[in-house]
Design a protein around this nucleic acid. Structure first.
Length: 558
RNA sequence: GCGCCCGUAGCUCAAUGGAUAGAGUAGCGGUCUUCGAAACCGUUGGUUGCGCGUUCGAAUCGCGCCGGGCGCACCA
């Protein structure tokens, strides 16, 4: 379904052009027309300030321009009435019967409601999660995966071809520390006096895994030379402990990735060398103090970045270069979105510079930053560190609070908002989490529809023109906004707007339910019952779409 | 010190540069013998941190302060 707003814009543009054709308005190029939803009741469904914006170029008073446009608007079944208001607004009210008729459209479209008619043919990759694979996911990553997943859903809903990816950082020093730590714990479990590495991972889970592996695999790693043993047990731990645990956690959050991408492969398949070659050819690589640098400052960044450290090992940025070369060039995504915590915000200019140095449009990479969540327990701040093992896992959280409640809580704030998450309150809050309000509305509709069906009421067709109660109209209006909410939220990478939409829609339904008896036992009300059942069914579709975009269940019962 | 983000009702947060800034929650007072009370209704609550600018119009854009968060490694 075309967003209603787009339709309104078309009508207004036609009005301007027709007024120009008749010489009522002077000739000028018609600018982009902005239309917004007035907050004030009585200002119609849509309002445009275009007459005020045209005042200068048309050399006419805004009110006269507005009247001229109004007088030349083409007939459109969706438009009910048009008013001009000082200082020059044009307010349009949608036609009630037309709004009601859209119930059929929503029901026909079903799961397609909210999506544009045609796919955009734009391939987008969203990469999120991507925690160092050195242990279970901690709660700090909850906002990352939930935001990334909702954004991916949202973009897909807006017609993009979306791929969801988890980047497995299985190369580099962090991995090495993990491997050595795991080996030490394993050896210790077998009574060997192998010390933990200096910067090793002290977490309880490493100890546990070391013991597990000792039990399951015996001494086989002990009998290998040290280097080999560390590499082998490290790989074993990564593949059989860390990744399965991460997979399980995100799956229980309702997240399914399309691809798990291994950092290591970048060095094995030549991506790294190819990307480096491009940077070198562009003259962006230099050697200094025994290290190899990417000269990001030449592309406007505040500082350069090390590619190869003086010890000969690639720095993490080298992987980033190769990885983004792979995404943007080898795999050819039109747009790549990385979801990052705001603690990495300082790297953004260098990442953008790198994309440009690869000869690409820097807008093809978008870094979606979210503010870190401050974790609390009864008002006390909890500091997390995988290194020291001081952590709260995502698993602990979702064992206590339903994944949907966690998701809604995290999605419903803009990525820029700093938020506190109190573990002690989380359980209590789950009861009053607005997510249940939305889900309840969906279940409530399902219940009414079940009742209707049990009573043998068929609502395959209805006279939708019977819908005219203010609460019916309000519900219709909210419901039909979904397409533009999806479009706007996707354009701004702002999944939280979907959460607010869902809440408002649920609210409109509850008001309708209060004011309008849906299933009536009186035979003279049968036609009205059918019309209201169809309206309720359409509202259910819209609620389900919003919940699905947020990655949540739309329950038939609860 | 420099950079990015934030500052809106007691609290948690909304609001593509548009008209009289909205929700939730907390507080107070009401509503279940008919479709799900996980719901609904009413009510209290604001100098949008402060100042100056930009323009027909600013919570929104610019500059300067004040306050908070996060960065500023040959770690990731």
């Amino acid at each position: 379904m075309q967003p209603i707003r787009d339709r309104v814009i078309d009508v207004i543009r036609a009005g301007i052009e027709r007024a120009q054709a008749e010489g009522v308005l002077p000739g000028f190029e018609v600018p982009a027309i902005t239309v917004d939803k007035p907050r004030q009741e009585g200002h119609g469904d849509y309002a445009t300030p275009v007459a005020m914006q045209l005042a200068r170029v048309a050399r006419m008073a805004p009110l006269r321009i507005a009247s001229a446009i109004r007088d030349h608007l083409p007939e459109d079944p969706s438009i009910g009435s048009v008013e001009v208001a000082p200082p020059g607004f044009i307010n349009l009210t949608l036609s009630g019967p037309w709004l009601a008729s859209q119930v059929d459209t929503v029901l026909e479209e079903g799961e397609q409601f909210g999506r544009p008619a045609c796919p955009r043919g734009v391939r987008v990759q969203v990469e999120y999660g991507s925690a160092n694979p050195t242990g279970p996911l901690h709660v700090g990553f909850a906002r990352n995966v939930v935001l990334g997943d909702a954004l991916a859903n949202l973009l897909a809903e807006a017609g993009y071809d979306v791929q969801r990816e988890y980047y497995v950082n299985d190369a580099g020093t962090q991995m090495r520390q993990f491997q050595e730590s795991l080996y030490a714990r394993y050896a210790q479990a077998l009574g060997q006096d192998v010390p933990m590495p200096e910067k090793g991972y002290q977490g309880w889970y490493i100890t546990e895994w070391g013991r597990d592996i000792a039990e399951a695999e015996g001494r086989r790693f002990l009998d290998l030379p040290y280097e080999e043993a560390v590499a082998e047990i490290g790989e074993y731990g990564l593949q059989r402990r860390v990744l399965p645990s991460v997979r399980r956690d995100v799956e229980d959050m309702g997240i399914r990735y399309d691809n798990w991408f291994s950092e290591r492969t970048l060095y094995q398949d030549g991506s790294f060398e190819r990307a480096m070659e491009i940077l070198r050819e562009g003259g962006y690589v230099s050697e200094r103090d025994g290290a190899v640098w990417f000269e990001a400052t030449r592309l406007g960044a505040d500082k350069d970045e090390v590619l190869i450290r003086s010890n000969g090992l690639p720095a993490y940025f080298a992987s980033d270069v190769a990885y983004h070369y792979d995404k943007l060039v080898t795999r050819g995504f039109d747009l790549v979105i990385d979801v990052w915590g705001a603690d990495h915000q300082g790297h953004v200019p260098r990442m953008k510079a790198m994309v440009e140095a690869l000869g690409l449009d820097r807008d093809r990479l978008h870094l979606l930053l979210y503010q870190l969540v401050t974790l609390k327990r009864g008002g006390e701040i909890v500091r997390l560190s995988k290194r020291t093992g001081e952590m709260v896992t995502l698993r602990e959280l979702i064992d206590e609070v339903s994944p949907d409640a966690v998701r809604y809580f995290l999605i419903s704030r803009s990525p820029d908002s700093q938020m506190d998450f109190d573990l002690e309150l989380a359980v209590k809050q789950s009861d009053e989490n607005p997510v249940f309000y939305v889900k309840y509305a969906h279940a409530r509709i399902a219940s009414v529809l079940r009742l209707a069906e049990a009573s043998g009421l068929s609502y395959e067709q209805a006279d939708l023109g019977l819908l005219e109660h203010p609460s019916e109209m309000a519900l219709l209006r909210h419901m039909l906004q979904l397409p533009e909410v999806v479009l706007d939220a996707a354009a701004d990478f702002a999944p939280h707007r979907v959460a607010y939409y869902a809440y408002d829609l649920a609210k409109a339904f509850h008001a309708f339910y209060r004011d309008c008896r849906i299933v009536s036992s009186l035979t003279e009300d049968t036609e009205m019952t059918k019309a209201r059942l169809r309206l309720a069914a359409a509202a259910k579709v819209a609620l389900a779409r919003a919940l699905t975009v947020m990655g949540m269940e739309a329950p038939e019962r609860m």
